[in-house]
Design a protein around this nucleic acid. Structure first.
Lengths: 104, 104
DNA sequence: ATAAACTTGTCTGTGATACAGACTTGTTTG
DNA sequence: CAAACAAGTCTGTATCACAGACAAGTTTAT
């Protein structure tokens, strides 16, 4: 007696590149576009697209400022994003280290 | 001083459906095609394709037998697969709970 | 002022691939 | 022989990650 769809990992977070990004934001609090460029190794266009997806999913907040007379785009997790990441991690753990039932 | 590609999660294992499959095999030792059908919720064709990929990646061993006068295809992780899964988990952990360096 | 550099972003094309569902083959059972 | 079950194969579709070209705004150098 049991069967869940089982595949419930938030695709927005699960994708490898975004998983890196979200993890960094979760640890560092905030990170700039250029910093993320380095940590991910993505191209600019590509990173931009990933950030757009995270922002429009409501997981990340974007702030544009001028620092040192230069444009600076900074990102940080929203409360929703933080919660989603926590849920994703919990689901991942449950999945990869679930109870050992007998398979047929 | 530091920058690794950062995105090093084995794509064969990271994909959500296959992550479920590999996790199940890791816990249960062996599982049949029909059992995996239920736990994943995939269609037969789809599951077949995923299993093919896991088998041809050398992560899963496939055995076809006749049980109760019916065809039975069983899968289990190979030593290579088990090792790859362990590595994947280690990488995932490192990634999602890495050291808190200062971001720019 | 014009050019060069920096930061970010948009757009396009391409390749990979996950997925549903139809059809196929082989075996067993009524 | 027909119906049912197991396991695939095949096709078409949609998504999506990615590289790289180009655009736009700001700042610094000449």
């Amino acid at each position: 007696m049991s069967d869940a769809p089982s595949i419930v990992l938030d695709p927005v977070i699960h994708e490898a590149a975004r998983l890196v990004i979200v993890s960094v934001l979760n640890e560092c609090g905030a990170a700039s576009f250029n910093f993320l460029l380095g940590t991910t190794g993505l191209t600019r266009g590509n990173l931009s697209a990933h950030m757009l997806r995270l922002v429009s999913s409501g997981y990340v907040h974007e702030s544009k400022q001028i620092v040192d007379r230069k444009m600076l785009t900074e990102y940080r997790l929203t409360p929703v994003g933080r919660k989603a990441f926590a849920k994703y991690r919990a689901e991942w753990m449950r999945l990869t280290t679930g109870p050992k039932e007998q398979a047929t």
